[in-house]
Simulated scan of single mutants.
Amino acid sequence: MSVPVTCFPLATFSESAETSKGRRHPEAESRTRNAFARDRDRIIHSAAFRKLKEKTQVFVAHEGDTFRTRLTHSLEVAQIARSLAHAMGVHVDLAETIALAHDLGHPPFGHAGEDELQIQMKEFGGFDHNVQTFRVCTKLERRYPAFDGLNLTWETVEGVVKHNGPVDDRLDEPAWKAVVEYAAGWDLRLDTFASVEAQIAAISDDIAYNNHDVDDGLQAGLFTIGDLLEIPLIGPLLGDVRRDWPAIDDRMLRLEAVRRMIGAMIDDVLAETARRAKTEGVETAEDVRRMKRPLVGFSSQMAEDLARLRQFLHTRMYRHYRVNRTRSQARRILAEMFNLFMAEPEVLPTELYERVKGRDQGGRARVVCDYVAGMTDRYAIEEHRRLFHLEIGREV
């Protein structure tokens, strides 16, 4: 009989909800959930999380019903994070929470949207989707009368900011000013690694997007199974599946190979993390933060294989002419809206127009950026149509 997740013994270097550093704005504890589970629920109930259902992963949300969106990607990352955290004996709720939150700040149209907002905000403090996620969690979500943001625990906020590692080398960048100002009043230890749970969320993101971009790319016809046969990791797995199921069709071959690749990557992370923990003598959560490299990671062979796979995806998928055309259209849409809102703020929705009145150019740009970054793909396309393709007599 399997042991329930709630009874799984925590590793000595796990975070603990009972010893959390708490919330910036003190609140009474939940009667039914630990502090990290409560963070998870606040993220799931946020407007930013709901909007992920129509934000691009690689393909614009309306291009197909089964391609990944930011929402389905985030759910898949969270599922992998839960599996890894459970297997390592660390805090499953915290790993899941950070995984669910990690893309909340992504603008519409994926990395094309981020690239365009970086250009538009270059003279006004910059734009970074990780910082925008932080701002969503600590300021932009307005659901509670006592504070702005979601008032998440210190461990969750730290994980959101540092899941990819220390950020002290980025603090001079204008886009990171919001993090610097916030941390001045609540030390997030920006020069250390984050918890093992945050690192699990980060590597779960890598596992999810590498596997699912292969799946989506094949389904979209951007490359073929034959193109993948010589690519490390996925190629041998395709051969294994063919040997196990000689009569298998291409759809099932794709799905089974991707399933096995996820399993292989998870097994590699578990083995490599155990090796690092033993080699480094990691015993406490503080030991994890003070390491000179991440505790959670891929083996050198897996990292090398993934680099080859990413290069293939970059060439054959992310820079495919069909994807490039969508990127080009997306950037034009965002650039035209941003410039119009800056030049004619009176066309902004009333609430936003009231916010920009009396502000300097930098203040106006930040409000406009937050508005544009918070749009879904569909809303951005419709808003652009309303602004630039006005049909006389139709309500706008």
Rank of each mutant, 00 (worst) to 15 (best):
residue 147 F to N: 06
residue 75 L to D: 07
residue 241 V to C: 05
residue 195 S to Q: 05
residue 53 K to Y: 11
residue 370 D to V: 05
residue 118 Q to M: 11
residue 157 V to M: 01
residue 299 S to Q: 07
residue 378 R to N: 05
residue 180 V to S: 08
residue 319 R to S: 11
residue 197 E to K: 13
residue 269 V to A: 03
residue 223 F to K: 07
residue 204 S to A: 12
residue 394 R to M: 13
residue 233 L to V: 11
residue 163 H to D: 01
residue 201 A to W: 02
residue 154 W to E: 01
residue 396 V to F: 04
residue 290 R to G: 02
residue 297 G to M: 07
residue 241 V to D: 00
residue 28 A to P: 11
residue 87 A to Q: 08
residue 158 E to C: 13
residue 265 M to C: 14
residue 343 A to I: 14
residue 256 E to T: 14
residue 124 F to E: 03
residue 49 F to A: 06
residue 41 D to H: 10
residue 57 Q to K: 10
residue 325 R to Y: 10
residue 335 A to C: 13
residue 317 M to E: 14
residue 212 H to T: 04
residue 321 Y to M: 12
residue 242 R to A: 02
residue 396 V to C: 06
residue 239 G to S: 10
residue 155 E to H: 02
residue 46 S to A: 11
residue 45 H to W: 11
residue 211 N to R: 05
residue 159 G to L: 01
residue 123 E to H: 14
residue 46 S to V: 05
residue 344 E to W: 09
residue 186 W to F: 09
residue 222 L to I: 09
residue 180 V to L: 13
residue 126 G to T: 07
residue 359 R to S: 13
residue 237 L to A: 03
residue 32 T to Y: 09
residue 137 C to H: 03
residue 55 K to I: 02
residue 138 T to M: 07
residue 15 E to H: 09
residue 263 G to A: 12
residue 240 D to V: 15
residue 3 V to Q: 12
residue 281 G to Y: 04
residue 391 E to V: 15
residue 355 R to H: 12
residue 6 T to M: 13
residue 333 I to D: 01
residue 154 W to P: 04
residue 394 R to D: 12
residue 74 S to A: 15
residue 229 L to F: 12
